[in-house]
Design a protein around this nucleic acid. Structure first.
Length: 389
DNA sequence: TTGCACTCATATGATACCAA
DNA sequence: TTGGTATCATATGAGTGCAA
C-alpha cells in the first residue's frame, strides 16, 4: 500500500515537473530523465550574439587542439553541470546543460534528474552528444565539471576518458584577455562587463544556493525553485557560447585594433606573442600606439620587439616614451639600449633616475638596487675611459 | 682569451581564483 | 566549503656579442 502511495507521489511530482519546466521524459522504462530543449538563431533572448563563424588558429593552438583537423563550429559541445556541491566524491550532477549548433541554430539541451536514482539514465544522451561532437567548451570545466562527471561515470562503472577529449576551457582564456582590465573573471563579471547583460534575480539563482534548492525540492516536492536553477543553467550555456563568440571575434586575423572597446588589445598581442607570432603582436602594439590607445606597458613591449628586430631607433622612441612617464622597466630598457649604442652619458642619466626612484620606494628591492648601482658604476668607468682617449 | 652583460629556453614552486 | 588549472616569479644554463 505504502509502495503504491510512493509511486503515485512520484508520478504526481513528475507530472508537475514537466508542467512547470517543460521538456520531454526520456524513453527509459524506469527512472527516465527530463530533457528540456530550446534553440536560438543568431541572438539569444538577452540580445547576445550566438553567431560563431569559425575558430581562430591562435585559440586552437593555445588550447592545444589539432589545428590540421580545423574543427568547425558544429563540432563544439558546451557543457555545464549543476551539482549538489563543490566536492568530487559524493557530489551529484542533477542537471547537465549542453549547447551545440544544429541546422544553423544554437540548441540548448538540459538533462534533469527528477530523482537521484535516475542519474545513470542521464548519461545516455550525454554520451551520444559526446560521440558526435569532438571539442568540449566549458567555463572552468577542466577543474570542476570534468572531474565531477568522471567521478559520477566511474561510480556507475562507465569508463570515458574525458580528460583526453579536446577541450577549450574559456575561464583561462578569459583570464588571459581580461585579468588586467576587469575586477574579476568569473562568468557573471564577464557577462556584465563584456557582454553587457545582468541576470535578473527574479528568474535566476546564485550558484552557491543551488545545492540547497535541489535538496529542498527532493525533501518537499516543491518544483518552483527548480525554475530558477534551470534558467541559471540555460544562461550559463548561452553565455559560455556568447563568450566564445566574443573571444573568437577578438582574435580573428586581421586584428582590427581599436574596433571593439571590450577588447584589451595588449592582451591579444601578448597571446599572439606567446604562441610564437611575434610579428602579429608587434603589428597590434604598433597600431595601438598609432591610434593613441597604447599604455606605457604596451609601448614598452613594442620597444622590446623592435629591439629584437634590430630597429633600435624605434625601440629607443618607445623606451623614451615610458621613461618620460617614469616607468621603471622603460628606464632600465633605455639605459641598456643606450649603453649598447655607446651613449654612456645618457645611459648614466637614466640609470641614476631609476636608482633614485627605486631608493625612494617604501620597500625597495635590494637586489634590484644592487644591479642598478652596478650598472651606474660601470657606466661611470666607461665615461671616464672615453674621456681619457 | 677572458670576463661581463644580455637573450632565450626550460624547469620548478607558489599563487590566485573559479566552479556549485 | 575543495580541487585543478594556468600563470607568474624565480633560478639555471647555454649561447652570443663585445671590450680589453
Amino acid at each position: 500500500m505504502a509502495h503504491t502511495q510512493d509511486f503515485d507521489l512520484k508520478t504526481l511530482i513528475r507530472e508537475l515537473l514537466q508542467a512547470t519546466l517543460g521538456g520531454e521524459y526520456s524513453a527509459h522504462e524506469e527512472d527516465s530523465v527530463l530533457i528540456i530543449s530550446e534553440s536560438w538563431e543568431g541572438y539569444s533572448d538577452e540580445g547576445v550574439s550566438l553567431d560563431l563563424q569559425d575558430i581562430p588558429e591562435v585559440l586552437l593552438n593555445w588550447a592545444q587542439l589539432d589545428v590540421s583537423q580545423g574543427p568547425d563550429v558544429n563540432e563544439l559541445l558546451v557543457l555545464d553541470l549543476e551539482t549538489t556541491g563543490l566536492g568530487r566524491g559524493n557530489t551529484l550532477a542533477f542537471l547537465i546543460g549542453l549547447g551545440y549548433f544544429e541546422d544553423g541554430k544554437y540548441k540548448v539541451e538540459q538533462i534533469f534528474l527528477p530523482e537521484p536514482d535516475a542519474e545513470l539514465n542521464s548519461f545516455d544522451r550525454l554520451i551520444e552528444l559526446l560521440e558526435t561532437h569532438s571539442v568540449l567548451v566549458t567555463f572552468n570545466g577542466k577543474s570542476f565539471d570534468i572531474p565531477v562527471l568522471e567521478s559520477r561515470l566511474l561510480y556507475h562503472r562507465i569508463w570515458l576518458n574525458l580528460r583526453e577529449k579536446e577541450h577549450i576551457d574559456l575561464l583561462h582564456m578569459a583570464r588571459r584577455l581580461w585579468k588586467n582590465t576587469l575586477p574579476s573573471c568569473a562568468l557573471e563579471s564577464l557577462e556584465y562587463y563584456v557582454m553587457g547583460v545582468l541576470r535578473d534575480p527574479e528568474f535566476d539563482i546564485d550558484g552557491g544556493q543551488i545545492p540547497q534548492a535541489y535538496g529542498e525540492y527532493l525533501m518537499s516536492g516543491d518544483v518552483e525553485p527548480l525554475l530558477k536553477i534551470v534558467k541559471h543553467n540555460q544562461l550559463d550555456i548561452i553565455y559560455t557560447m556568447a563568450l566564445m563568440v566574443i573571444i573568437c571575434d577578438a582574435l580573428r586575423l586581421p586584428i582590427e585594433v581599436g574596433k571593439d572597446a571590450r577588447v584589451d588589445y595588449h592582451a591579444v598581442a601578448r597571446l599572439y606573442q606567446s604562441q610564437g607570432q611575434k610579428d602579429v603582436a608587434k603589428q597590434i602594439l604598433c597600431e595601438m600606439k598609432d591610434l593613441s590607445i597604447a599604455t606605457v606597458e604596451s609601448v614598452h613591449e613594442l620597444g622590446q620587439l623592435c629591439k629584437r628586430d634590430k630597429e633600435l631607433e624605434e625601440a629607443q622612441h618607445c623606451f623614451e616614451y615610458g621613461a618620460a612617464l617614469s616607468h621603471p622597466p622603460s628606464l632600465l630598457a633605455l639605459a641598456i639600449l643606450l649603453e649598447q649604442t655607446k651613449e654612456y652619458e645618457q645611459a648614466l642619466e637614466y640609470t641614476e633616475q631609476l636608482l633614485s626612484q627605486q631608493q625612494s620606494l617604501p620597500l625597495p628591492d635590494l637586489r634590484q638596487l644592487h644591479d642598478i648601482d652596478k650598472r651606474r658604476i660601470r657606466l661611470q668607468r666607461k665615461i671616464a675611459k672615453k674621456a681619457h682617449k
